[in-house]
Design a protein around this nucleic acid. Sequence first.
DNA 1: TATAAACCTTCCCATCATGGCAAGGTCAAG
DNA 2: CTTGACCTTGCCATGATGGGAAGGTTTATA
Lengths: 139, 139
Amino acid sequence: MNIGNAAEGSGVSAKMIRYYEETGLIPQSRRSDSGYRKYAQTDVHTLRFIRRARDLGFTTERIKELLGLWQDRTRPSRKVKAIALNHVAELDADIAKLVSLRDAVTHLAGLCHGDEHPDCPILDGLSGDTPALLSRTVA
Amino acid sequence: MNIGNAAEGSGVSAKMIRYYEETGLIPQSRRSDSGYRKYAQTDVHTLRFIRRARDLGFTTERIKELLGLWQDRTRPSRKVKAIALNHVAELDADIAKLVSLRDAVTHLAGLCHGDEHPDCPILDGLSGDTPALLSRTVA
DNA sequence: TATAAACCTTCCCATCATGGCAAGGTCAAG
DNA sequence: CTTGACCTTGCCATGATGGGAAGGTTTATA
């Protein structure tokens, strides 16, 4: 099948399929006489795997590892689990950072009357006249 | 003062100061006879404001609004608070998405023995043989 | 004063994953 | 044989940031 069908069947755009090929995430595909990329059902399967992993927020680098492990039928599941747990740790770190930001902004917003008067602790906090406002809440 | 001192005093790199100028977040600075950008203390103040807002995760677009409100001494604090709360809502949405991803990956990892055997529900989940594994957990 | 160090300028490139567009070749159906 | 759908490569753009090069300026020092 051509790239369009592979894209449709996998949920990965044709553009991204070419990109994955270019960057080595997937091997170069066979070509027809006229130069069209040709895909088999297993390729679509692989692409779907990649898309799912991306949907779960795995980085390209990690997906490369996962693909290798997926295709190695003898690897210990321990290795796969390690990558997954590592990913969880990264997500947790990202979450913690966002939570800290949200709390800081929420804190500032809570100090602001939000009425018709111009006085605003939010802007004061940002402008640095009261630096403690931020340093306490944001790492 | 030159751009280097403004950078040091504000915590914004010289590179980014030029970028902010180029993209209109800050006005074009005055120049010395030889073409060097010249900054006053108020400019450093503004840059610090920008850096703090960025540290809190505000987008450039929002920072532009906040700067405008900061410089308008008569604006109602209501407007500033609205932007801040909007930002909080966006952060909450981002957090929710990451949490959902983390939970999905955690769920998959929990199904995997993580031992020396090759069987691995994580890879099975990604490969799509058991699509329900993901569709349930990830929006 | 001459020279070197430190600083400034603009411009280009790279990131990461993705989309868009354009010019041109190919294929299948009418 | 024409038309339309599809494919190819290649370039540009995103957003915020850093790196580096080539070349001009300022300052400090020998």
